[in-house]
Simulated assay, not measured.
Amino acid sequence: MDKKIMCTLKLWGLKVMVIILLIPFCIYGQESTEFFSASYSVASRSRAVNVGNVRVGTVDINLITPTINIGKNLKLNNIFAYKSSNYAVRSEEGNAISYPGNLSDLQYALLMRQQLNKRWSLIALPQLIVRSNFKSNFGSRDFFPALAVIAMNQSANHKGLQWGYGGSYSRDFTKNTFTPLFAVSYSSSDYRVDIMLPVKAQFVMTPSKILEYGIDANLETAIYNIGTKNDYGAQYTKTINIPVALTGAVKIKGMVWIKAKVGMNFAREYEFLDSSFKALDGRSHNIESSPYASIGISLRIKE
């Protein structure tokens, strides 16, 4: 991408974030909600089949704007996210390998929550995603649209329990990936459970208002445009990772929380694809499981 365009996009993004953060959050009510988070994680070097070894560092930033109420039953939130993963790959001889390199993931999503009746609600999440290493000209191949829809049911017997089902469309695993979804959510004064199969599962204990700890697991898979100016003649890189970690969060002051994770990365892989999203022969690289750690900050308000 042209440097001038990149600078313009970065400046625009900074302006948007500043404006959003200046919106008075005092309109929110009682329930604590994370509206901003930023973290850095690193996975230790481990062997990659047919390559050498790989070390991955990741920056992850998320921002959710205040809820917009339309009528009595429809709620909207804008979600902005940025993720940058740096694959530091070295051959068996210790030489640096330039691919996959630094992979960027920028997302905008519109979270829509429609209350259908006392027990049922409908959640829709259309997304516009840009995934690229930005080493080639910016174009349509960098865009990866996605859509998730799920119907949620409020349990009549347990106030804190919700469950639901739906599906999603994305270009996370293949060119057109359709995935059925099943969700369970439960919260009480002592703990909360948040499960969205096959995407994530989280269990968090809440012994006090300033301390949380638990365990979570995620399925992370994505396809990035890397252009054709590379050693392999590839158009895309597909990455897969399943991190499982112990988690902890401590309230520092006001709305500021510090959070950390320590765990293992499993089922790790990256492979190169052609322009039709087909895997290139001999260009699939499994990475051995390795420990990882994450540290970050989050801001929470009462909604």
Rank of each mutant, 00 (worst) to 15 (best):
M1Y: 00
M1E: 02
D2M: 03
D2T: 00
D2G: 01
I5Y: 12
G13A: 12
L14D: 04
V16W: 07
V18Q: 05
V18W: 00
V18P: 05
F25G: 11
Y28P: 07
G29V: 13
Q30V: 14
T33R: 14
F35H: 13
F36K: 06
S41H: 09
V42C: 14
R45C: 14
R47C: 10
N50R: 13
V51K: 08
G52M: 08
V56E: 10
V56Q: 02
V56D: 06
I61H: 12
I61T: 15
P66H: 01
K72M: 12
N73K: 11
K75H: 13
N78F: 11
A81K: 11
Y82E: 05
K83E: 10
S84H: 10
S84E: 08
Y87C: 08
N95T: 06
N95W: 08
A96I: 09
A96M: 10
Y99T: 14
L103A: 08
S104D: 15
D105T: 10
Q107W: 02
L110G: 00
L111C: 12
Q114T: 13
R119E: 12
W120D: 14
W120C: 13
S121K: 07
I123D: 06
A124V: 13
A124H: 08
P126T: 02
Q127W: 14
L128G: 08
I129F: 12
R131N: 05
R131A: 02
N133P: 07
K135A: 09
F138D: 06
D142H: 07
F143T: 07
F144D: 03
P145C: 03
N153R: 14
H158T: 15
L161V: 04
Q162I: 08
G164T: 04
G167F: 11
S170K: 01
K175P: 04
F178I: 06
T179R: 01
S188Y: 04
S188E: 14
S189T: 15
Y191H: 11
R192E: 02
V193K: 09
D194R: 03
Q202Y: 00
P207K: 02
I210V: 11
L211M: 03
E212H: 01
I215F: 01
D216M: 02
D216H: 01
N218E: 13
L219P: 01
I226F: 09
I226K: 06
N230D: 11
N230F: 04
Y232A: 05
Y232H: 00
G233P: 00
K238G: 13
I242G: 02
L246Y: 15
T247V: 03
T247H: 05
K251P: 06
I252F: 06
G254P: 00
I258W: 00
I258N: 05
I258S: 10
V262S: 09
V262M: 15
V262N: 06
G263F: 04
G263P: 04
M264N: 04
M264I: 00
M264F: 02
A267T: 05
R268P: 09
E271Y: 02
S275N: 06
L280N: 01
D281R: 10
R283L: 07
S284E: 07
E288L: 09
S289K: 02
S289L: 01
Y292C: 05
S294H: 03
I295V: 15
I295K: 10
I295L: 15
S298Y: 12
R300L: 07
